[in-house]
Simulated scan of single mutants.
Amino acid sequence: MTTPSDTQSLILSRAATRPGNLALPLPEGLVGAAAKMVVGKMIARGWLEEVEANLRRREPMWRETGDGHGTTLIATEAGLEAIGIEPLAASAVASVRRAKPKAEPELVQTPDDSETVKPVAIRAGTKQAQIIAMLQRPEGASIAEIVAATSWQAHTARGAISGALGKKLGLVVTSSKEDGRGRVYRICQSD
């Protein structure tokens, strides 16, 4: 497998911290022909994907298509895996992008950056990535199973599901009561 260059790694790691794995804006100083060359290689390797930009969400555009629409760049699962982000965690974040939004998110305005959003990062081997993997299984996971896997208190596990997964990452987590297991949580897969 090809190893990303420093510039490519920077683009992918920044994309991993943005909602929907947006790869734009590119690093400062990477413009013009150099930007097209780097992005072209990343698309060819399957690390970036060009998708239609959601202008209502004020997503940055990579290029205009000429009919009032534009495209943006997102990091793919292969791209995130190339920099060491676990594929299951990457696919969970990618599924959020494919899901239909319930409401338009508001951007946080700061004086030096007009489109700053909260960073979102899922690192391989973390308890958060472990919980996401458990909730993506068809059988889901109960609080007792999450507590056993993470060594957390039950209230911490519930808080992680609600806060980190639901609010911070925007994942849709459902729960249902099952005989013998109690309340079982699952991440909704949208395909």
Rank of each mutant, 00 (worst) to 15 (best):
W47Q: 04
A121D: 01
T110Y: 06
L30S: 10
R181C: 11
A82H: 01
V31N: 10
K41M: 13
E115W: 10
P105K: 01
S162D: 07
A90K: 03
V38F: 12
R18S: 10
A148G: 03
V39K: 06
V173D: 08
N21C: 14
P19Y: 08
V38S: 05
M42G: 02
R45H: 13
A99H: 04
E64P: 03
L55R: 05
I187V: 15
Q109C: 04
E115D: 07
Q128T: 13
I83P: 02
M37A: 15
K118D: 07
R97Y: 09
T17W: 02
T72V: 11
D113S: 14
L48D: 08
G140M: 00
L80C: 10
V39W: 11
L55W: 11
T156G: 03
A129S: 13
Q8P: 02
A148C: 05
E86R: 11
P4V: 07
A157C: 14
A44L: 09
A149S: 05
E81Y: 11
I85N: 04
E106Q: 08
K127R: 14
R57I: 11
G84P: 01
P105W: 04
A34H: 04
P138L: 09
T71N: 05
P119R: 10
G46S: 03
G20D: 05
A75K: 04
V120S: 00
A129W: 09
E59D: 01
L48G: 11
R186D: 03
Q8M: 10
V93I: 15
E50I: 04
Y185C: 00
G40Q: 04
I132K: 03
E115M: 06
W62S: 02
S91Y: 12
V93Q: 09
R123T: 13
P4A: 04
I146L: 11
G182W: 07
P19C: 01
A33Y: 10
T7S: 04
V108K: 08
G70L: 14
V51T: 04
V39R: 06
Q130R: 09
A16E: 01
A129I: 08
S5A: 08
A148Y: 12
A157N: 04
I131L: 11
P19G: 06
L22C: 10
S162R: 12
Q128P: 00
P111Y: 14
L165I: 09
E59R: 00
S176V: 07
A35V: 02
D113F: 15
K127E: 12
V172K: 12
D6R: 10
N54W: 01
E115G: 03
G140F: 00
R158C: 12
I143K: 05
T156F: 05
P87S: 07
A33C: 03
M134F: 02
K102R: 09
E145A: 11
A129N: 02
I43P: 00
R45L: 14
G140Q: 02
K102Y: 11
W152Y: 15
K127I: 15
S95R: 11
K118E: 08
A148T: 12
R137A: 15
A141F: 14
L73D: 03
V147A: 10
V147K: 09
L171R: 02
S175H: 13
Q153F: 13
I146P: 05
A103V: 12
Q153V: 14
D191Q: 09
L26Y: 09
R56E: 09
S175R: 13
E145M: 10
A141Q: 07
L73V: 05
A34D: 12
E52N: 01
R45V: 14
G159A: 15
T71K: 12
A129R: 05
S175K: 15
L48M: 04
L55D: 07
